[in-house]
């Protein structure tokens, strides 16, 4: 049984991770790189100070980042950014092939992680599995890990303004968990009470509200940010559909 679950998940995750990396190269990645141009300077440098930098710059200049404000940028970069996990000396992959290879690795690992959750769900639920049923389960994963959290915290392009990272991560995880539990109660709850409870749990994080910054107006053009938000949700849908079909198909084929 271990071999069936882990074997199917690793096979599905590796293939889906490879495929989605190719799709990202022509959809989300160009938008990320384009947005980083507005972050002023190289990625690892800009990332360290971007949020506070943009706030100051918006207040002082009311314009988007430009080369002329380099002095402010450098001065601010020495002040430290509490609550951020970046620092200027941290290693980062070189732009180009090395960066793509690390993104590929991250995508494959993410694919295996989600596929393990899918095969675990297949096993607990029991019954015949197939690629098509896998896609149905994966749509639940898409709702849980993309649709639910993104309603409160829309996809961020590099350089967008946002509340403190830890608070957003906590809300994000709480919302994903609530969406998953809520959906399970709605789908598998045999009584109307369970369905109503599921709906209440599902909407609770949105009633509580996601953490948002006090002011908005990052340096990335809204057209670019909007395009990225739409593109990343579409790419996530494609990813989950592929992962679901592959997980279901391998789960059916692999010996227990």
């Amino acid at each position: 049984m271990f071999r069936k679950l882990f074997g199917a998940a690793f096979a599905a995750g590796i293939i889906a991770g490879l495929l989605i990396t190719g799709i990202q190269q022509v959809t989300t990645t160009p938008l990320i790189l384009h947005a980083e141009e507005y972050e002023n300077g190289g990625h690892d440098h800009a990332a360290a100070v971007q949020s506070d930098y943009v706030i100051i710059q918006t207040k002082l200049f009311s314009t988007r980042p430009s080369a002329g404000s380099e002095t402010l940028f450098l001065a601010h970069s020495n002040s430290g950014t509490e609550g951020h996990d970046h620092d200027d000396e941290a290693w980062a992959p070189e732009d180009g092939l090395e960066r793509t290879v690390f993104t590929l690795g991250a995508n494959i690992t993410m694919g295996i992680a989600f596929a393990l959750m899918l095969t675990a769900a297949f096993a607990v639920h029991g019954g015949e599995m197939s690629g098509r049923r896998g896609v149905l389960w994966a749509m639940g994963g898409f709702a849980m890990f993309t649709l639910g959290p993104n309603l409160g915290l829309p996809p961020e392009v590099p350089g967008s303004m946002a509340a403190e990272l830890g608070a957003r991560q906590m809300w994000w995880l709480g919302c994903a968990a609530a969406t998953g539990i809520g959906l399970c109660l709605m789908v598998f709850g045999r009584k109307i009470g369970f369905v109503v409870l599921g709906i209440l749990i599902l909407i609770a994080p949105h009633v509580i509200g996601a953490p948002h910054p006090e002011e908005i107006g990052g340096g990335v053009p809204p057209e670019l940010a909007g395009h990225f938000a739409a593109a990343s949700i579409v790419v996530a849908a494609v990813f989950w559909a592929m992962l679901g079909w592959l997980s279901g198909t391998f789960y059916k084929r692999f010996e227990a």
Binding site: T28, W91, V157, S232
Partner: peptide, 12 residues
């Protein structure tokens, strides 16, 4: 973070 940066953004 730096190694997984683009994947984190792509997965929103």
């Amino acid at each position: 973070h730096n190694a997984t940066h683009d994947a984190r953004h792509a997965f929103a």
